[in-house]
Amino acid sequence: MRETVELSLVVNGRAHPIRVEPRETLADVLRERLGLTGLKISCDVQVCGACTVLVDGLAISACTYLAADAEGHEVTTVEGLARAGQLSPLQQSFIDAAAFQCGFCTPGMRMAATALLAENPAPTRAQVVAGIEGNICRCTGYVPIIDAILEAAGAVDAAGVSEGAR
């Protein structure tokens, strides 16, 4: 019998008593044990950002973060951002700008954007680019994502898509 540890995992404001092996990643526990499949596993080497979740408001790669380390911290996943059926400004701006195609990167991208805006509510275009530099989107070429984040921050970019990232 492998060693397990008992955790109280606080996810999206709700405590989940759960027994895990120390080796289990936060991504596996959230997806396979708690059914929170919004975060995705892609590169599995902390490069792509598809598994981005927040721990105490900081973005981390859940694919390479031990679930046991989340004990005592607040975990936020994409499922925790919806408010009673109401789209958040970021959700709405992602839809308005068509800031996704396949949608596989979108939950992670949204978490990265959430962390970015929490830290810097009025970012410049360059700051948005820096903030999502570690999140890969293979479909959109990033342009609408950057626009959507700026839009959600209230910095409506009149030039829109033609501005590119720089």
Binding site: V45, V129, G141, Y142, S162, A165, R166
Partner: peptide
């Protein structure tokens, strides 16, 4: 792997028309 196979990132995107 995605560490060594580099796909474009947000900072690689030029102004676009």
């Amino acid at each position: 792997n995605l560490v060594e196979y580099r796909v474009p990132r947000a900072s690689d995107i030029p102004p676009f028309t």
